[in-house]
């Protein structure tokens, strides 16, 4: 019924899109290119986008000059534990808020949602003081894990998905004699699969990329994370541009992999939290 888009229009559209993407990706392409150059060549004009003599040694030296391997391990550890706790407690609470009826539920949920709007800067100092003076947890990985494991946004996100599960389904299960916990485990959890995937990806990426948390809480070198590792390069070897870029490229790889594999969940997650929020 509809006219097909004329070929010239298509070509123009492609040209515009390619131009936009080229501009958007330029900093990242430049990063990759610079990571394979010697420091003296990084800023040479005209730019040699694909270095004719790639300095692969940059990728070897980043592991030798600062304990990057240790940092990578630390980051994985914190990220994975946080993600597990987050998924478990958030999906539990989401079911409680979406499908269990009891008084005070809506008020409690409102408090949750309201805290999402409170900027972290408002309470980062009291939080730090509490961690320091009461729990004596400053300079441990546990503090980073605790900080990110009970995020109100996760509860909010999963609750939105949970609301979509038809009540009849749960009612039928209740009549069949399943307890609320049984319903959660056997019916709700499997249905929440896609939304949990979304939460896992968001948690993974935000923890992997977290910079302020580790910066405020970690002092010991052996506890530091990848993001602090790059900052160390920038502080100690500020003119070794090739090395800084190589470390940056390495730090992006896990996120790139997760992003490309789970892109669909990412997009769905944003769309859902966005339009129903």
């Amino acid at each position: 019924m509809l006219n097909k888009t004329p070929a010239w229009k298509k070509a123009l559209l492609y040209a515009v899109l390619i131009l936009i993407c080229a501009i958007t990706l330029l900093p990242l392409v430049w990063m990759l290119s610079a990571s394979l150059k010697l420091d003296k060549d990084v800023f040479r004009i005209p730019i040699e986008w694909i270095p004719s003599n790639p300095a692969w040694s940059n990728y070897r030296r980043i592991w030798e000059q600062v304990p990057m391997l240790r940092f990578t391990f630390n980051t994985f550890k914190v990220t994975i534990i946080t993600t597990i706790i987050q998924v478990f407690t958030c999906s539990f609470a989401a079911y409680g808020f979406a499908k269990c009826r009891f008084r005070g539920r809506n008020t409690l949920f409102l408090i949750y949602v309201a805290t999402i709007a409170v900027p972290w800067q408002v309470y980062m100092l009291p939080q730090y003081t509490m961690m320091n003076n009461v729990f004596h947890m400053v300079d441990t990985h546990a503090v980073l894990i605790l900080l990110h494991s009970f995020d109100a946004f996760g509860v909010f996100l999963l609750r939105q998905f949970c609301m979509g599960i038809p009540d009849e389904l749960l009612e039928a299960a209740r009549i069949d004699g399943l307890s609320e916990y049984g319903i959660y485990r056997k019916i709700v959890l499997p249905q929440m699969g896609p939304s949990i995937a979304t939460l896992v990806i968001f948690t993974f990426v935000s923890n992997w990329n977290d910079f302020m948390g580790p910066m405020i809480y970690l002092n010991s070198t052996e506890l530091k994370t990848v993001q602090l590792g790059i900052r160390m390069f920038m502080g100690q070897y500020s003119t070794e541009y090739g090395l800084i870029m190589a470390a940056s490229v390495v730090s992006l790889i896990p996120v790139i992999i997760v992003f490309l594999v789970f892109q669909k969940q990412f997009v769905q997650g944003i769309a859902t939290s966005g339009l129903k929020g």
């Binding site: 958007t24 940056s248 730090s251």
Partner: peptide, 13 residues
């Protein structure tokens, strides 16, 4: 993609 890239790496470049 820039949205999921880490601020530290992005700032460096």
């Amino acid at each position: 993609f820039p949205y999921v890239a880490s601020v530290v790496a992005v700032a460096a470049v």
